[in-house]
Amino acid sequence: MPKSKRNRPVTLSKTKKKGKEHKEAIVNSIRQAIDNYNSIYVFSFENMRNLKFKEFREQLKSTSRFFLGSNKVMQISLGRSIADEVRPGIHKVSKILRGNAGLYFTNLPKEEVERLFEQYEEYDFARTGSTATEKVELKEGPLDQFTHEMEPFLRKQGMPVRLNKGVVDNFSSPFNHLLG
């Protein structure tokens, strides 16, 4: 039996693909930055927050330029081999572009750049999967800081809790030594 034409998924989003022109614009702007700036650095990041990065980028806006995006597009703009590199030896930079990485173009001296990157540190709330920086101990008894909806989550994390008249209650269990 033929497939029904009625049972087709219909996309409701109106987004358009960026296309070849967008990638060519990135390649051209990176090549222009190669001509405008003396130094190029590859930086890597982990759990980067967009707002914090914007603040850092704004601080260095007058002396430098950042590029984030597809590693392959950035590699193509630098040149992947000796044959297609834009400047002599710059294809070595494209070999380092792996994972979460970006390009930083600047006219600042190396010591100043290292100082800026080492000095800039912003604290923010932890995301899922990040390791705890502090040890928290919860006493036995009612835990007013948690709502009743948090009880299943706390239990899943291995905490000996129960609901007592709508209040999360931490209790001592004979099996606590097994929880670690």
Results as ranks from 00 to 15, higher is better:
2 P>L: 06
3 K>V: 03
4 S>L: 08
7 N>H: 05
8 R>W: 06
11 T>W: 02
12 L>M: 08
16 K>N: 11
21 E>K: 15
22 H>F: 13
23 K>E: 11
24 E>S: 06
27 V>Q: 12
28 N>D: 14
29 S>E: 13
35 D>S: 15
36 N>D: 14
39 S>F: 14
40 I>F: 11
41 Y>D: 07
41 Y>G: 03
45 F>E: 01
48 M>S: 04
50 N>M: 10
50 N>P: 00
50 N>V: 12
52 K>Q: 11
53 F>H: 13
57 R>H: 10
57 R>D: 10
59 Q>N: 14
59 Q>Y: 03
60 L>F: 02
60 L>A: 02
61 K>F: 05
62 S>N: 12
62 S>H: 13
63 T>E: 15
63 T>F: 09
63 T>Y: 14
64 S>P: 05
64 S>T: 04
65 R>P: 02
66 F>E: 05
69 G>L: 01
70 S>E: 01
72 K>M: 13
74 M>Y: 01
76 I>P: 00
76 I>D: 07
77 S>L: 06
78 L>Q: 05
78 L>N: 01
79 G>D: 13
85 E>A: 06
85 E>Q: 15
86 V>T: 09
86 V>C: 07
88 P>K: 10
88 P>H: 09
89 G>T: 06
95 K>T: 05
95 K>E: 10
98 R>M: 09
99 G>R: 12
101 A>Q: 07
102 G>K: 03
108 L>W: 01
108 L>N: 04
110 K>T: 15
110 K>G: 14
114 E>I: 12
115 R>I: 00
117 F>S: 07
118 E>W: 00
119 Q>A: 15
119 Q>M: 10
120 Y>C: 00
122 E>T: 11
125 F>E: 11
125 F>V: 12
128 T>A: 13
129 G>M: 07
130 S>M: 14
134 E>W: 03
137 E>C: 11
139 K>H: 06
142 P>D: 14
145 Q>N: 06
145 Q>P: 00
148 H>F: 09
148 H>K: 14
148 H>E: 15
149 E>P: 00
150 M>N: 11
150 M>G: 00
152 P>H: 11
156 K>S: 12
162 R>H: 02
163 L>N: 09
164 N>I: 09
164 N>C: 01
170 N>S: 06
170 N>R: 14
171 F>Q: 03
